[in-house]
């Protein structure tokens, strides 16, 4: 498998159930409101994510970084 590491790709991390619960409460949303990521996405495959999982992405924007969340969907 080719390397999926690249300067364009921020860090991806699988979230635990507890973290997901806190996140959804904090943002006051249902998981379906989140942006999506396909199950077949190279980064999702690398983490072994299944549909329904939420991936936390540590986006870098210059010097600051902020979290972004994507829910894994089939495809």
């Amino acid at each position: 498998m080719p390397s999926t590491d690249h300067i364009l790709v921020p860090e991806h991390e699988l979230m635990s159930d507890k973290e997901i619960k806190e996140l959804l409460k904090d943002l006051d949303i249902v998981p379906e409101n989140l942006p999506k990521i396909l199950e077949s996405d190279p980064q999702a495959v690398k983490l072994g994510a299944k549909p329904g999982n939420i991936i936390k992405i540590e986006r870098r924007d210059g010097k600051i970084s902020y979290p972004y969340y994507r829910i894994v969907i089939e495809g």
Binding site: L8, V9, I37, D41, P42, Q43, R59, Y68, R70
Partner: peptide, 10 residues
Amino acid sequence: RLFGIEGARN
């Protein structure tokens, strides 16, 4: 294709 949706976004 190579790096996924976040890479494409950036």
